Amino acid sequence: CHSECLGNCSQPDDPTKCVACRNFYLDGRCVETCPPPYYHFQDWRCVNFSFCQDLHHKCKNSRRQGCHQYVIHNNKCIPECPSGYTMNSSNLLCTPCLGPCPKVCHLLEGEKTIDSVTSAQELRGCTVINGSLIINIRGGNNLAAELEANLGLIEEISGYLKIRRSYALVSLSFFRKLRLIRGETLEIGNYSFYALDNQNLRQLWDWSKHNLTITQGKLFFHYNPKLCLSEIHKMEEVSGTKGRQERNDIALKTNGDQASCENELLKFSYIRTSFDKILLRWEPYWPPDFRDLLGFMLFYKEAPYQNVTEFDGQDACGSNSWTVVDIDPPLRSNDPKSQNHPGWLMRGLKPWTQYAIFVKTLVTFSDERRTYGAKSDIIYVQTDATNPSVPLDPISVSNSSSQIILKWKPPSDPNGNITHYLVFWERQAEDSELFELDYCLKGLKLPSRTWSPPFESEDSQKHNQSEYEDSAGECCSCPKTDSQILKELEESSFRKTFEDYLHNVVFVPRKT
């Protein structure tokens, strides 16, 4: 048989008469490798580009789960590009990614509803959504962080984005990388972005840091009482949809009607710091009717980097990364020049730590249904340095008659930039024990000054392991946590139920 035959053949030295091919099969003959313009397919066939392209389009058009959109890589027609490569849609070739590779997620039936953290986790790592997304989240724990972890990498949506009755959302900033909504599939009414009845939605994105392009379709905003109209108009300008909307697409009466839409800028007039305090004062603000001013709200939190936005980490279910302080308005003076500047002394802060701070007014709604208010920009203030805590785990070892090696770990709280350490030492008198000992005694162990690591005695271990207080009263049991108490109650309830079950099964009433 021919060298490319495997198993047997019907005619000697003829690659077209093989029972099976050793390498690849091409047009009725066995070959060692697939010549151009053919590609290896499933490690035994040679196919042309049209064959591989037909497989790709067949799966793409069917949208069946589990099928493969075949691509070409290293002269092979394979189910998908290997790690580190992405497909070129024009020629199906796998090309190296520039940075992290995109991950295209194809949605069944063309859309997916995100109504819980669990459903959001199914899209973790996706960068391109081939379909439409509907966000409908009523509640949950730590929602802002969970949504950002699972949806934060999405850069492109081919269909539309719909935010509907998501009472738990305060902001859409968890879509931190969303840059493009194509609108290839539109919501009824030709809408590519749809926001309806979101009672706590206050911000779409921080438009000073976020760009969003909507290729096709219109915007729809109705019944978002805490979303200011200025935020919607800003989205029109940034996304390129200005002029597409009709009169009733953006409701003037049901958007922002319960919001404090600040239209003035508060400026800080005085800032002073110490290692654990920050004193702030800002310019006074009074609405047209000074009785509408209820006070100020001061927001602050630790910020290692200057990239904080107002609604980071917030949701309507209680999660809030900001510390909020309510401040009463100052006494009002008739003389504008003698107006008191409101302020606040922030206490209990960490030394040498940068804080993000902003302040906003708290006002009631005027009778004319106009909203007044003022808010400052987010500023960054760093507390002063102070003395560091003591170095940890000092170790001293003498390696000769004239040297001592000293080692330690950095302090747990540096409280500033540590530039150097101060080492103090003092000579001590020799131990009298060394002169009084009889060095001729056998088995004498000389006193040693070398360091030995501390260890816990058996008594201390027994005390720590004991669940009861000892007789001397030195140790006591740790208080039980809520989960331990709940577990004990469940076990007790189970024992009672099981005992009742045994009584009912074992003891049967005697027939009379």
Rank of each mutant, 00 (worst) to 15 (best):
H233L: 02
V325R: 09
T383I: 01
H341V: 07
L204C: 12
K360N: 10
P351R: 05
K360Q: 02
L108N: 14
A251H: 07
P225V: 10
M346C: 05
W286T: 10
I250D: 14
Q354G: 11
D384F: 02
V390T: 14
V381S: 03
L293W: 06
D393G: 06
I379M: 13
L123Y: 10
N340W: 13
A149R: 04
L331F: 05
L186R: 12
E111G: 15
K209N: 14
I214D: 00
P351N: 03
K234F: 08
G217V: 00
R291L: 07
F358K: 09
G373K: 05
A356Y: 00
E302R: 05
E264T: 11
L143G: 13
T127I: 05
L362V: 04
G217C: 08
P304D: 13
I114V: 10
N141D: 06
K177R: 09
L201M: 02
G240V: 01
S171E: 14
L279T: 01
N340V: 14
Y380P: 00
E122S: 15
A120P: 03
P284L: 15
P284I: 03
T254I: 15
Y300S: 06
E184L: 11
P394L: 11
S401D: 05
G189Q: 02
N200F: 07
E236I: 03
L153K: 13
G217E: 00
T361W: 03
W322D: 01
Y160G: 04
E231Q: 08
G343P: 01
C317H: 15
T241Q: 14
L147D: 00
H222S: 08
L345Q: 12
N150T: 08
N399Y: 05
N141K: 13
P388H: 13
E368Y: 11
Q216K: 01
G373W: 05
R202L: 04
R347Q: 09
Q354P: 08
A144V: 13
D315T: 07
P287K: 03
S208T: 10
V325M: 07
L293I: 03
L349K: 01
R165A: 13
K267T: 09
L219E: 01
T241V: 07
D115V: 01
N334H: 15
I278Q: 01
A356L: 02
F174T: 03
T371P: 10
G131D: 01
Y191I: 14
T254C: 04
D367V: 15
E146S: 04
Y305R: 10
V390D: 03
K242C: 15
Y167T: 15
E122Q: 06
L161R: 00
I405N: 14
S260G: 10
Q121P: 04
G343N: 15
S321D: 15
S171C: 08
S401I: 07
L298P: 00
I154M: 06
F290K: 03
D335G: 03
V363E: 01
E187V: 07
I404S: 02
S376F: 00
Q199T: 11
N211V: 11
T118G: 15
S333N: 01
F358P: 00
P284E: 14
A303V: 14
C317Q: 08
I188A: 11
D393N: 09
T361M: 09
D289Q: 03
R291E: 06
I188L: 10
R176C: 07
H210V: 08
G189I: 01
T353W: 02
F358R: 14
T215S: 13
L107P: 12
L169K: 01
Q203G: 01
L186Y: 04
G125F: 06
Q199S: 05
I188F: 10
G343S: 07
L172N: 01
P351V: 07
P388V: 15
G256F: 05
T118M: 05
A149F: 14
W352C: 15
L169M: 08
P287T: 12
G217D: 00
Y355A: 02
N150L: 03
A385R: 14
N387G: 05
Q203T: 12
N142W: 05
E246F: 11
F290D: 15
Q203A: 13
D312H: 08
L331K: 11
D257F: 07
D367Y: 14
V128I: 08
G318L: 15
N320S: 05
C317T: 03
Q306P: 15
W207F: 12
I154V: 12
T254G: 14
Q339H: 14
K407G: 04
A374V: 04
S119N: 12
S158A: 13
E155Q: 11
N200V: 10
R179E: 10
G295R: 02
Q306V: 07
D206C: 08
G189N: 14
C261M: 01
W205K: 03
A144G: 11
Y167Q: 15
K103Y: 06
E155L: 06
R165M: 09
C228H: 05
E236V: 13
Q306T: 13
N142P: 12
T383N: 00
I114G: 00
K242W: 10
G217F: 01
P388Y: 03
I378R: 03
A120L: 07
F193L: 11
C261L: 02
W286C: 12
C317G: 08
K112Q: 03
F220G: 15
R291P: 08
T118S: 10
L252E: 05
I181G: 00
C317K: 01
L252A: 12
S401P: 03
R332V: 14
M297C: 11
S274H: 02
S166N: 04
V359H: 01
V128K: 05
A149P: 04
Y372K: 10
T353M: 01
G348F: 06
D312I: 14
S158W: 11
G131Q: 01
A374F: 03
L293D: 03
H341Q: 13
S132D: 04
G110D: 10
R176L: 03
M235G: 06
G240P: 05
Y160P: 01
H210Y: 15
A120R: 02
T127S: 08
P410T: 15
D289S: 07
E231K: 04
R281T: 09
Q314E: 12
P329V: 06
G256M: 05
P388R: 15
N334R: 13
W286V: 05
V104L: 09
K267N: 11
S158H: 05
N136T: 03
A168Y: 12
E236C: 11
A385S: 07
E146L: 10
C261Q: 02
K177H: 07
N263L: 05
S338E: 13
I154P: 01
N340P: 07
I135M: 05
Y300D: 00
H106S: 09
Y160W: 04
L108P: 13
N334W: 06
N150H: 13
L406M: 07
N263G: 15
A251R: 06
Y355F: 11
Q203K: 12
I278P: 00
S166I: 05
Y194C: 15
F296A: 05
L392S: 14
P225E: 05
G313T: 13
I395G: 14
R179M: 11
Q199F: 14
W344Q: 10
R347M: 08
R138I: 14
G139E: 09
Y160V: 03
H222A: 04
T127M: 13
E302S: 08
G373H: 02
H233I: 14
G217S: 03
L294W: 09
R176F: 04
D257Q: 11
L293N: 08
A145T: 09
L153V: 13
T213A: 08
G348W: 04
R369S: 07
D115R: 04
A195L: 10
T127F: 13
D249G: 09
N142I: 00
H106D: 04
R291T: 14
N263Y: 03
K407L: 03
S274P: 00
L362P: 02
F174R: 00
C317R: 00
I214W: 05
K226I: 10
Q245R: 10
C261P: 02
L362N: 06
G217R: 02
K360M: 04
P329T: 12
D249N: 10
A316P: 13
I405A: 05
R281P: 00
S260Y: 03
E283F: 07
N211A: 13
N263K: 10
P330S: 06
P304Q: 03
R247D: 06
L298T: 02
V381E: 08
G243S: 05
T364Q: 01
E156M: 07
S366R: 10
R369W: 10
D292A: 03
M346A: 05
Y223G: 10
F175V: 04
L108H: 14
W282I: 04
K226M: 09
L294H: 09
L280R: 00
N136A: 04
P336S: 07
N399K: 14
Y223P: 00
Y380A: 01
Q121Y: 01
G110V: 05
T254P: 06
E368K: 14
I135Q: 00
R272W: 13
S208V: 08
I278H: 00
N248S: 10
P342A: 07
I188W: 03
G131S: 02
G140Q: 15
L143R: 13
V363N: 13
K218V: 13
N307M: 04
Q306A: 14
R179A: 09
I379K: 05
L331Q: 13
E148R: 10
L196F: 03
L252C: 14
L293K: 07
Y300M: 12
N211C: 11
A120T: 11
H233K: 06
L349T: 02
